[in-house]
């Protein structure tokens, strides 16, 4: 709709809105930690600190200043990537996040890949015969995947593949033997990728086996999502006349499904990618806890147990900003690819 000028204004408007939302999100996150019962100064000073020590911590953290001043210094620091010091690890939070992020991304990207490789073909097959057995079964499968608690299914997978079948390792990113005899040179921080880059095949095999269960657990919901969205958009496309024409011309149904129909039903894939990424970001928290996966999720869970507010706040803020930006990118890409979609 409209000419290029209005397209540009729409993009600018959307960018402005996004910026505003990010500012509001940071205010909410900040205010929540300041208006709460627990005293950050006491937590910072430690459990057995004297009243003087707590006062000292209060001044050191700037908690004696007015809230507005506190917010601006917090926001200013955050913009420069400085989130303060973790109460628990006593390390700068930004360096902690940098250290733990690659492992989480490795998990999230693997889950996205699985969602696309499994979810989309299943959706196509389901659309071949609407209301058929395959359609009903995949529908049930997708809903089950959305209804299962990820932390529980993670443990059930451990029970099956580690305890009963003994095919896959219980948890962690690599085994001790690999660390000792075939250590993976850290380049990106993603175990499997680093092993590949360093041509460490033994290490790759080990890292890959460790990745399988967590990635599968994290991908369950996204697989269901990809399945349903593909199925639903295929359902619409399959009613189009050109499909009927192709059928009448005697073209094989596999060819029709995967060549003609899928091509025109792929628009939602982008949405699936965005949603999957967004979902996995928080889904990873629970999965990492079960599999002792050294990522952001395990980091923030430890922070929750230790009432480590700065970390909880930083991870919430960073996670939300990433989520907002991914949604923005997906919307923009979709508006660019599909002229029927306009930015709001």
């Amino acid at each position: 709709m409209g000419n290029d000028m209005s397209g540009l204004t729409l993009i600018l408007r959307r960018l402005g809105m996004t910026l505003l939302v990010i500012v509001c999100v940071s205010i909410i996150t900040f205010m929540a930690t300041r208006l709460l019962p627990a005293d950050p100064a006491a937590l910072y000073a430690g459990p057995r600190a004297s009243a003087d020590k707590i006062e000292e911590a209060r001044i050191q953290l700037g908690l004696d200043k007015p809230l507005v001043v506190q917010y601006f210094s917090f926001a200013g620091d955050a913009l420069r990537g400085d989130f303060g010091i973790s109460f628990r690890t006593r390390q700068p939070i930004s360096s902690d996040i940098k250290r733990f992020l690659p492992a989480t991304l490795e998990l999230v990207f693997s889950a996205m890949a699985l969602a696309i490789l499994i979810g989309i073909p299943l959706g196509v097959v389901a659309a071949a015969r609407p209301g058929g057995v395959v359609d009903q079964l995949t529908r049930l499968l997708a809903i089950s995947m959305a209804s299962v608690p990820s932390f529980w299914v993670a443990m059930i997978l451990q029970l099956i593949f580690f305890k009963w079948l003994d095919w896959l390792p219980l948890s962690g990113q690599v085994s001790t033997e690999t660390m000792l005899f075939n250590p993976i040179e850290p380049i990106t921080g993603m175990g499997t990728l680093d092993a590949l880059l360093g041509k460490n095949w033994v290490g790759f095999r080990d890292a890959f086996l460790h990745l399988l269960l967590p990635a599968l657990t994290l991908s369950l919901y996204p697989i269901g999502l990809a399945l349903r969205m593909t199925r639903s958009s295929m359902g619409v496309v399959m009613k189009e006349r050109y499909i009927t024409t192709a059928r009448a011309m005697g073209i094989s149904s596999t060819h029709i499904l995967f060549k003609f129909a899928l091509k025109n039903a792929l628009a939602p894939v982008l949405t699936v990618l965005g949603l999957t990424f967004a979902f996995s970001l928080t889904g990873a928290v629970l999965v990492e806890v079960i599999f002792d996966w050294p990522g952001i999720g395990a980091y923030v869970t430890a922070a929750i147990l230790a009432v480590d507010f700065p970390v909880i706040m930083a991870v919430t803020l960073v996670g939300t900003v990433v989520y907002i930006l991914v949604n923005l990118l997906v919307d923009m890409a979709q508006a660019m690819l599909d002229p029927r979609v306009t930015l709001r």
Partner: peptide, 12 residues
Amino acid sequence: LAFPPLLLAIFL
């Protein structure tokens, strides 16, 4: 709605 699902709940 800008907060990822679950993250806001965990945070609060």
